[in-house]
Simulated scan of single mutants.
Amino acid sequence: MSVFTTRVLRLTTGTSESVTDLTRECERFLHEAAGGGDGLLNIFVPHATAGIAVIETGAGSDDDLLAALHTLLPADDRWQHRHGSPGHGRDHVLPALVPPHATLPVVAGRLELGTWQSVCLVDTNKDNPERQVRLSFLG
């Protein structure tokens, strides 16, 4: 018998570009939802200007990711999508590089992440600090 459980996290990311670690929230959700079982955790952000990344945090990699995105997607006037802050069109291209979802293995109720991996929300949109992230467990 399969189990499907879902929860929506509501976050405020602020008025600057950010990488927000969601790993603890994912683990708390799995503690309740997985019941010690195996399955898959899907993380999905229903926004056109944010993504989910599995990266190292706390050692500068999160800042390096934002710097790389600035190089690849400069916040200038080259974008055809022009509403919002100057350069906001790049935020709408972000999900093509940092997808709005990730699906991760769960074993014995725990995320199977590598030693230095974290689940992160990547948000370059300074115009919309209110975000939702849907966590869904299928086991």
Score class of each variant (00 low, 15 high):
Asp62Phe: 04
Thr15Gly: 14
Gly39Lys: 08
Thr115Leu: 08
Gly114His: 04
Phe29Pro: 01
Pro99Leu: 04
Ala67Ser: 14
Asp91Thr: 04
Asn128Ser: 08
Ser18Lys: 13
Asp63Cys: 02
Leu113Tyr: 05
Arg28Trp: 02
Asp76Gly: 05
Asn42Glu: 06
Gly109Phe: 10
Thr124Phe: 01
Ile43Asp: 07
Asn128Met: 08
Leu9Glu: 03
Thr6Arg: 13
His92Ile: 01
Ser18Arg: 11
Asp64Arg: 04
Thr20Trp: 10
Asp62Leu: 07
Ala50Arg: 01
Ala34Cys: 02
Gln132Trp: 11
Leu30Phe: 07
Val119Ala: 09
Leu65Cys: 08
Gly89Asp: 06
Pro129Cys: 09
Ser18Met: 09
Thr124Met: 04
Leu72Gly: 05
Val119Pro: 02
Ala34Ser: 11
His101Ser: 14
Asp64Gly: 07
Gly89Ile: 00
Ile55Lys: 01
Leu97Ser: 05
Gly89Trp: 00
Asp64His: 12
His81Gln: 09
Thr115Gly: 10
Thr15Asp: 15
Gly84Ala: 15
Thr71Val: 15
Gly89Glu: 00
Gln80Thr: 15
Pro129Lys: 10
Pro74Phe: 03
Val133Tyr: 00
His70Tyr: 03
Val98Glu: 01
Ala33Cys: 03
Leu121Ile: 07
Asp21Arg: 09
Leu30Ser: 03
Asn125Trp: 12
Pro46Cys: 06
Thr103Gln: 08
Pro86Cys: 09
Phe29Tyr: 05
Leu73Glu: 04
Leu22Met: 12
His101Tyr: 14
Ala53Pro: 06
Pro86Trp: 08
Arg82Leu: 11
Thr115Pro: 13
Leu30Tyr: 09
Ser61Thr: 15
Asp76Thr: 04
Asn125Cys: 12
Val122His: 01
His88Gly: 01
